[in-house]
Design a binder for these strands. Sequence first.
RNA 1: GCCCAUGUGGCUCAGUCGGUAGAGCACUUCCAUGGUAAGGAAGGGGUCAUCGGUUCAAAUCCGGUCAUGGGCUCCA
Length: 641
Amino acid sequence: MVRITLPDGSIREFEEAVKVIDIAKNISEGLARVIVGAMVNGCTAGLDQIVEKDSTVSLLKFDDDEGKNIFRHTSSHILAQAVQRLYPGTMLAIGPAIDNGFYYDFDSEHVFTEEDFEKIEAEMKKIVKQDLKIERFELPRNEALVYMEEKGEQYKVELINDLPEDAVISFYKQGDFVDLCAGPHLQTTKKVKSLKILSIAGAYWRGSEDNKMLQRVYATSFEKNKQLEEYLRRLEEAKKRDHRKLGKELDLFSMHEEGPGFPFFHPKGMIVRNTLEDLWKKEHIKKGYGEVKTPIILNEELWHRSGHYENYKENMYFTEVDGESFAVKPMNCPGGILVYKSNMYSYRDLPLRMGELGLVHRHEMSGALHGLMRVRSFTQDDAHLFVTLDQLKDEIMGVVKFTDEMYKIFGFKYHVELSTKPEKAIGTDEEWNVAIESLREALIEMDVKYIVNEGDGAFYGPKIDFHLEDAIGRTWQCGTCQLDFQMPQRFDLSYVGQDGEKHRPVMLHRTILGSIERFMGILIEHYAGAFPTWLAPVQVRILPISDKFNDYGAGVKKQLEDMDIRVELDTRSEKIGYKIREAQLQKIPYMFVVGEKEVEASAVSVRQRAEGDMGSKSIEEIAKEILAKVKNRENDSPGVE
RNA sequence: GCCCAUGUGGCUCAGUCGGUAGAGCACUUCCAUGGUAAGGAAGGGGUCAUCGGUUCAAAUCCGGUCAUGGGCUCCA
């Protein structure tokens, strides 16, 4: 007797061991048709898997994340099979399912281009139509190695060699195609009705620069064509939110060949930027931070002392003046430390919180540059906290809370990562462990969910990172809170304790927005360029019906300016429909239409970008409404999804 | 840095088989003075990223460089 517990708590009983697919059939034939796999006691399983003992089973459809993974993993095998049919001699590396699709890495004589996509898709569809049965088999290690060697699959041989001694080595076979794979998979190829190859890219074998670069084919698949079409449509929509495109259209910033990775901010972009910085400054004062500003260029010796020269010099810019070597700062901490060192401190002065909107330069690799998200010069909304060990946890928690509050203003969702000791690091393992545990304890105490990112800490300490999403779902690290025992030692920082003795403070390096540039990039995509009124470069555009009303418009403009509302007047000799269209495309929150009626009533006709015509209002009334939105930082962007 | 692709007026793009450039928008001027997403006409504007090669002739073919895009690696 095998008892199967289903997610709803109900129990099905079977005489003997039962296949997953038969459990589904036992529930309903209809269900059995849409099932792609199952979770059996928390592990994914294929439909053929036999359940021998009492188990908890949840059946997976394509709509479930694990279901999609099974579906797309099979899709990746179909891709590999098609490619090997079309380009014999192509070696297979790995081909996993990923968010929104799957990929396969190939090593092939043939150089794949977009022109091949159609052909590969056609071959894949042929395989789907052939309805090939997918079968699992296992081989002992030696046989598995011989088998893959005979096939010339040297990458698979390497993978097998790296599997643990006791690992089960399984293969999946469909027609004449066999791949080393843990599974599970669909039962046949026929379910993959809808598929599309999306792009081709280079990718290092095993993700290491030292290895050969393989050709990675990205693709996606769905159960139904309709889902694929919907997905492709969403991708198109997301492209419209691309901050690089909107940055140009809305005249916020530009990039130039003369300075790759060095963004140029235009007047409208500067308004957004300055508004963000004003918010930042105000909130930091409330949280007990002081603000400092330290130089961009400092002598090279300082960077030797800080450890940056040793650990970071390939990313630094250098310059020489009067025979002395200077470095352009890639980080703000040494500057902040020099500020700290210019005073004596008592334990009463701690925690000391010092904020700096610090312009840093980092020579990122050319291929890494990406709009405002990844640049070579940027302003970190940095801060350095000098604290006693006793204060450490509270201060970390304060930073995490502060970050959360700031992100909430914009309506961001984010995820948190805890990064541990990297290969290139200073300090002892003991210090690192204490530091990592302090961060972990703070997160646990605050009940913040996080994932661990092994080996991704800064060279001087571990960190908590906050990641925000862009329009197409890529995540970008923005906020960070880094713990550092090293700099205080290297710079011999101290404070006088209650006991009258010298003690060493601990340092926290942290950012909230991350960099103003990246944060703006994310903001632009988040709002689809339609900034909430409080952030909008232009809050109101006045649109006279004809030239006759330009003077009245100018009067309204003056009134609004006096109330610190950002306003433009469109005096061009164009029809009102044209002026509205342009203001609408510029995503300006408020349009004031003024003509004969408005002049007579001393009013304006208000049009909002999302709601349309709101009718006539007095200037005082509408100004009050706008100012209230600005004061409350109301999130009135129609662009947020 | 690596793999692949791309680079034509301010912007978006067309340009076939090599025969020395074209559209729409924007801009300027004129007409029109119009009530909630593009009124009409005329005009100006390009060394086809850049350097070199092949050719009687190169935007077009080949190579180098630079930049951009999609990834990898790396990172705020």
